[in-house]
Lab assay of single mutants.
Amino acid sequence: TTIEWNGTKITVDNPQKAKELAKKIAKKLGLTVKVHGNTITIE
């Protein structure tokens, strides 16, 4: 699972952990999480 935001890509083996990490990042930055299959985008 890949997390993408602002040109940065982070690959996380565990999809559940990836989703939790994305939510934490999005919350800190005041952004939203969008899931597209194996890609999680923070916008």
Results as ranks from 00 to 15, higher is better:
residue 1 T to H: 10
residue 1 T to A: 09
residue 1 T to C: 15
residue 1 T to Y: 11
residue 1 T to S: 08
residue 1 T to I: 15
residue 1 T to W: 10
residue 1 T to F: 14
residue 1 T to V: 15
residue 1 T to E: 06
residue 1 T to R: 07
residue 2 T to A: 05
residue 2 T to L: 10
residue 2 T to M: 07
residue 2 T to N: 09
residue 2 T to W: 04
residue 2 T to Y: 05
residue 2 T to D: 12
residue 2 T to H: 08
residue 2 T to F: 05
residue 2 T to P: 04
residue 3 I to K: 07
residue 3 I to F: 02
residue 3 I to V: 09
residue 3 I to L: 04
residue 4 E to P: 02
residue 4 E to N: 08
residue 4 E to D: 14
residue 4 E to A: 03
residue 4 E to T: 03
residue 4 E to G: 04
residue 4 E to C: 11
residue 4 E to Q: 07
residue 4 E to S: 06
residue 4 E to W: 07
residue 4 E to L: 05
residue 5 W to F: 15
residue 5 W to P: 07
residue 5 W to V: 15
residue 5 W to Y: 13
residue 5 W to M: 13
residue 5 W to S: 09
residue 6 N to L: 13
residue 6 N to K: 04
residue 6 N to P: 15
residue 6 N to S: 06
residue 6 N to I: 07
residue 6 N to H: 15
residue 6 N to R: 04
residue 6 N to C: 15
residue 6 N to T: 08
residue 6 N to A: 08
residue 6 N to W: 15
residue 6 N to D: 13
residue 6 N to F: 15
residue 6 N to M: 08
residue 7 G to D: 10
residue 7 G to R: 02
residue 7 G to I: 05
residue 7 G to C: 15
residue 7 G to M: 03
residue 7 G to T: 08
residue 7 G to V: 08
residue 7 G to F: 05
residue 8 T to P: 03
residue 8 T to H: 15
residue 8 T to A: 10
residue 8 T to C: 15
residue 8 T to M: 15
residue 8 T to E: 09
residue 8 T to Q: 13
residue 8 T to I: 15
residue 9 K to H: 11
residue 9 K to C: 15
residue 9 K to P: 04
residue 9 K to Q: 13
residue 9 K to E: 10
residue 9 K to D: 04
residue 9 K to A: 10
residue 9 K to L: 13
residue 9 K to T: 15
residue 10 I to H: 02
residue 10 I to A: 01
residue 10 I to P: 00
residue 10 I to Y: 04
residue 10 I to V: 04
residue 10 I to G: 01
residue 10 I to S: 00
residue 10 I to T: 02
residue 10 I to L: 05
residue 10 I to E: 01
residue 10 I to Q: 01
residue 11 T to A: 05
residue 11 T to M: 12
residue 11 T to L: 12
residue 11 T to K: 11
residue 11 T to H: 13
residue 11 T to W: 15
residue 11 T to N: 07
residue 11 T to I: 15
residue 11 T to G: 02
residue 11 T to D: 04
residue 12 V to Q: 02
residue 12 V to I: 13
residue 12 V to G: 01
residue 12 V to M: 12
residue 12 V to K: 01
residue 12 V to E: 01
residue 12 V to Y: 04
residue 12 V to L: 13
residue 12 V to C: 15
residue 12 V to H: 02
residue 13 D to C: 15
residue 13 D to R: 14
residue 13 D to N: 13
residue 13 D to L: 13
residue 13 D to Y: 09
residue 13 D to E: 12
residue 13 D to V: 11
residue 14 N to C: 10
residue 14 N to Q: 03
residue 14 N to A: 03
residue 14 N to F: 04
residue 14 N to E: 03
residue 14 N to R: 03
residue 14 N to I: 04
residue 14 N to M: 04
residue 15 P to Q: 07
residue 15 P to L: 13
residue 15 P to Y: 12
residue 15 P to R: 09
residue 15 P to G: 05
residue 15 P to A: 10
residue 15 P to M: 13
residue 15 P to C: 09
residue 15 P to D: 04
residue 16 Q to C: 10
residue 16 Q to S: 09
residue 16 Q to N: 09
residue 16 Q to V: 11
residue 16 Q to W: 09
residue 16 Q to E: 11
residue 16 Q to T: 11
residue 17 K to Q: 12
residue 17 K to A: 11
residue 17 K to T: 10
residue 17 K to S: 07
residue 17 K to H: 10
residue 17 K to N: 07
residue 17 K to I: 13
residue 17 K to Y: 12
residue 17 K to M: 12
residue 17 K to R: 11
residue 17 K to L: 14
residue 17 K to D: 07
residue 18 A to Q: 00
residue 18 A to S: 02
residue 18 A to F: 03
residue 18 A to E: 00
residue 18 A to N: 01
residue 18 A to R: 01
residue 18 A to G: 03
residue 18 A to K: 01
residue 19 K to I: 15
residue 19 K to F: 15
residue 19 K to D: 05
residue 19 K to G: 05
residue 19 K to Q: 11
residue 20 E to N: 10
residue 20 E to K: 12
residue 20 E to R: 12
residue 20 E to V: 10
residue 20 E to I: 12
residue 21 L to K: 02
residue 21 L to T: 02
residue 21 L to Q: 02
residue 21 L to H: 02
residue 21 L to N: 01
residue 21 L to S: 01
residue 21 L to F: 07
residue 21 L to Y: 06
residue 21 L to P: 00
residue 22 A to I: 06
residue 22 A to W: 02
residue 22 A to V: 04
residue 22 A to R: 01
residue 22 A to P: 00
residue 22 A to H: 00
residue 22 A to E: 01
residue 22 A to D: 00
residue 23 K to N: 12
residue 23 K to L: 12
residue 23 K to P: 01
residue 23 K to R: 12
residue 23 K to C: 15
residue 23 K to H: 12
residue 23 K to G: 09
residue 23 K to F: 08
residue 23 K to W: 07
residue 23 K to T: 11
residue 24 K to M: 10
residue 24 K to H: 09
residue 24 K to N: 07
residue 24 K to G: 05
residue 24 K to A: 12
residue 24 K to D: 06
residue 24 K to R: 13
residue 24 K to I: 13
residue 24 K to E: 09
residue 24 K to S: 09
residue 24 K to L: 10
residue 24 K to V: 09
residue 25 I to R: 00
residue 25 I to F: 04
residue 25 I to A: 02
residue 25 I to E: 00
residue 25 I to L: 11
residue 25 I to K: 00
residue 25 I to D: 00
residue 25 I to M: 06
residue 25 I to P: 00
residue 25 I to H: 00
residue 25 I to S: 00
residue 25 I to N: 00
residue 25 I to Y: 02
residue 26 A to K: 09
residue 26 A to N: 05
residue 26 A to H: 07
residue 26 A to E: 07
residue 26 A to W: 03
residue 26 A to R: 14
residue 26 A to T: 06
residue 26 A to M: 07
residue 26 A to S: 08
residue 26 A to Y: 04
residue 27 K to F: 03
residue 27 K to T: 09
residue 27 K to I: 10
residue 27 K to M: 09
residue 27 K to C: 11
residue 27 K to N: 12
residue 27 K to R: 11
residue 27 K to L: 11
residue 27 K to D: 14
residue 27 K to W: 02
residue 27 K to V: 08
residue 28 K to C: 14
residue 28 K to D: 12
residue 28 K to F: 11
residue 28 K to P: 02
residue 28 K to E: 13
residue 28 K to L: 14
residue 28 K to R: 13
residue 28 K to S: 11
residue 28 K to M: 12
residue 28 K to I: 14
residue 28 K to A: 13
residue 28 K to G: 08
residue 28 K to H: 15
residue 28 K to Y: 13
residue 29 L to S: 10
residue 29 L to P: 07
residue 29 L to Q: 06
residue 29 L to E: 07
residue 29 L to G: 08
residue 29 L to C: 15
residue 29 L to Y: 14
residue 29 L to I: 06
residue 30 G to L: 01
residue 30 G to C: 06
residue 30 G to K: 03
residue 30 G to W: 02
residue 30 G to I: 01
residue 30 G to Y: 02
residue 30 G to R: 02
residue 31 L to A: 14
residue 31 L to G: 15
residue 31 L to H: 08
residue 31 L to S: 05
residue 31 L to E: 03
residue 31 L to D: 03
residue 31 L to W: 06
residue 31 L to Y: 05
residue 31 L to V: 12
residue 31 L to I: 09
residue 32 T to A: 10
residue 32 T to W: 02
residue 32 T to N: 09
residue 32 T to K: 10
residue 32 T to S: 11
residue 32 T to L: 09
residue 32 T to C: 13
residue 32 T to Q: 11
residue 32 T to D: 06
residue 32 T to H: 10
residue 32 T to M: 08
residue 32 T to P: 05
residue 32 T to R: 06
residue 33 V to F: 03
residue 33 V to Y: 03
residue 33 V to Q: 01
residue 33 V to D: 01
residue 33 V to A: 05
residue 33 V to T: 04
residue 33 V to K: 00
residue 33 V to C: 06
residue 33 V to G: 00
residue 33 V to S: 02
residue 33 V to W: 03
residue 34 K to P: 00
residue 34 K to R: 12
residue 34 K to M: 07
residue 34 K to F: 05
residue 34 K to I: 13
residue 34 K to N: 09
residue 34 K to E: 08
residue 34 K to S: 12
residue 34 K to Q: 10
residue 35 V to H: 05
residue 35 V to D: 03
residue 35 V to I: 15
residue 35 V to A: 04
residue 35 V to E: 05
residue 35 V to Q: 08
residue 35 V to C: 08
residue 35 V to M: 10
residue 35 V to F: 10
residue 36 H to C: 15
residue 36 H to A: 12
residue 36 H to G: 04
residue 36 H to F: 05
residue 36 H to P: 00
residue 36 H to M: 12
residue 36 H to Y: 04
residue 36 H to D: 14
residue 36 H to Q: 12
residue 36 H to W: 03
residue 36 H to T: 11
residue 36 H to K: 11
residue 36 H to E: 14
residue 37 G to H: 05
residue 37 G to P: 02
residue 37 G to S: 03
residue 37 G to Q: 05
residue 37 G to K: 04
residue 37 G to C: 07
residue 37 G to L: 05
residue 37 G to A: 05
residue 37 G to M: 05
residue 37 G to F: 03
residue 38 N to Q: 07
residue 38 N to G: 05
residue 38 N to A: 07
residue 38 N to V: 05
residue 38 N to S: 10
residue 38 N to F: 03
residue 38 N to Y: 02
residue 38 N to L: 06
residue 39 T to P: 01
residue 39 T to Q: 08
residue 39 T to A: 07
residue 39 T to N: 07
residue 39 T to L: 09
residue 39 T to W: 06
residue 39 T to R: 10
residue 39 T to I: 13
residue 39 T to D: 04
residue 39 T to K: 09
residue 39 T to E: 06
residue 40 I to T: 01
residue 40 I to Q: 00
residue 40 I to L: 06
residue 40 I to W: 01
residue 40 I to K: 00
residue 40 I to F: 01
residue 40 I to S: 00
residue 40 I to M: 02
residue 41 T to S: 09
residue 41 T to E: 05
residue 41 T to G: 02
residue 41 T to A: 04
residue 41 T to R: 10
residue 41 T to Y: 15
residue 41 T to I: 14
residue 41 T to W: 13
residue 41 T to Q: 06
residue 41 T to H: 08
residue 42 I to D: 00
residue 42 I to Y: 02
residue 42 I to M: 07
residue 42 I to G: 00
residue 42 I to Q: 00
residue 42 I to C: 04
residue 42 I to N: 00
residue 42 I to L: 15
residue 42 I to P: 00
residue 42 I to V: 06
residue 42 I to F: 12
residue 42 I to E: 00
residue 42 I to T: 01
residue 43 E to S: 12
residue 43 E to N: 08
residue 43 E to Q: 11
residue 43 E to M: 14
residue 43 E to T: 13
residue 43 E to C: 15
residue 43 E to K: 09
